[in-house]
């Protein structure tokens, strides 16, 4: 795999996201700046400046018109992708841990951090589909999470039907995205082991979570049932599902030097790990980072993936032929229509 190293950030990366067409890659870091890159060659497309603190999260809508970001300055900001213009700033009393657009781009959710005297909330804004329109100040939905531990991640399911949240205690919850009512709470990961990431399949009917419990799990969005489990030997920060027809998941994590007695890159396990999505077996690793992988993302067109590291680098890897051609024997059988 041919790696491209994107070295525009000065501090640890926190999230990287591809545009839905796959041509652009957005990255956020603790250095307060959002960068945009061409995923094909790693050239810089632009930067979005204005945040006054570390950034935790970024997302882009389906038409690559709007960009949303959030971070430690207690704001969610909405930007015009093409021009870099700041369109809207929503202010809160605690930092923003996550933003995500719905699959139709008409809604944006944000997760506010739980702090002393402040509960976690998930807020939803209706996004007017016009860059010249004044976006509303008030959320269309506010879920106050008072029964469950801190929300760490959240996202919209298919048809904006559910909001799924991941929590500090390792549990995963399902809310009705219209009423805000909690429908399910499942203890998917080990008790007390934070859910660190939640990413969707292309049709948003299933998702993957990663956790500090060293596993990633594939869940059905409607039943919250755990369909698959991917065990590793390191705390995970992120997990992504590759688009069909390739059936892999990519996991990223590793322990920070201060958390382990050894500091070598080898022992820190700073590798992207590829598992077969259906058979739950590890099939390969990609090295390169000098610190934990804080986020992994897959290009929706399936041409490449990107990882954002604690080391301040974004690495973009374009897949070679063997990635697409690899099959298990039983998969080949299936494709050839052989029955036993």
């Amino acid at each position: 795999m041919r790696p491209i190293l994107l070295s525009g950030h000065e501090r640890a990366l926190t999230q990287v996201k591809f545009s839905k067409e796959g041509d652009l890659l957005f990255s956020v870091s603790k250095d307060h700046i959002i960068c945009a890159w061409y995923s094909a060659n790693g050239e810089r497309f632009g930067a979005y400046k204005g945040h006054q603190g570390a950034l935790w999260t970024v997302d882009v809508d389906p038409t690559t018109t709007f960009l949303a970001s959030g971070g430690a300055d207690n704001t969610i900001r909405l930007w015009e992708v093409r021009t870099g213009r700041l369109l809207k700033t929503w202010e809160f009393t605690t930092s923003i841990k996550r933003v995500e657009f719905s699959e139709d781009g008409r809604q944006l959710l944000g997760v506010t951090e739980k702090r002393m005297n402040q509960l976690s909330t998930v807020i939803v804004y209706d996004i007017k589909q016009d860059v010249e329109a004044e976006q509303g100040d008030e959320p269309s939905l506010r879920i106050v999470v008072d029964e469950l531990p801190k929300v760490t991640v959240a996202g919209f399911s298919y048809l904006n039907k559910y909001i799924i949240t991941g929590h500090e205690d390792g549990s995963v919850s399902q809310y009705d995205a219209k009423s805000g009512e909690m429908l399910h709470n499942a203890f998917s990961h080990d008790d007390g082991m934070q859910v660190t990431d939640l990413q969707w399949s292309a049709d948003r009917t299933y998702f993957i979570t990663s956790s500090k419990d060293k596993t990633a799990k594939l869940h059905a969005a409607d039943s919250l049932e755990v369909m698959k489990t991917y065990p590793t030997d390191t705390p995970l920060n992120s997990a992504a599902i590759t688009p069909d027809p390739v059936q892999y998941v990519i996991l990223g994590g590793g322990q920070a030097a201060m958390d382990v007695t050894t500091t070598s890159a080898r022992q820190g396990k700073f590798e992207a790990r590829f598992y077969h999505k259906i058979f739950e077996e590890e099939i390969g690793r990609v090295r390169g980072h000098f610190g934990p992988l804080n986020y992994v993302a897959v290009d929706p067109t399936g041409k490449c993936y990107a990882s954002g590291g604690e080391d301040g680098y974004v690495r973009v890897h374009h897949f070679d032929e063997s990635y697409y051609e690899f099959r298990y024997e039983v998969e080949r059988e299936r494709e050839q229509g052989i029955r036993f």
Binding site: K20, E21, P62, E103, D104, G105, D203, P300, T301
Partner: peptide, 15 residues
């Protein structure tokens, strides 16, 4: 009354 593919899936077709 929605099309077969979601907006984000349609983005791939446009490309």
């Amino acid at each position: 009354g929605l099309p077969d593919l979601s907006e984000e899936q349609q983005a791939l077709m446009v490309d």
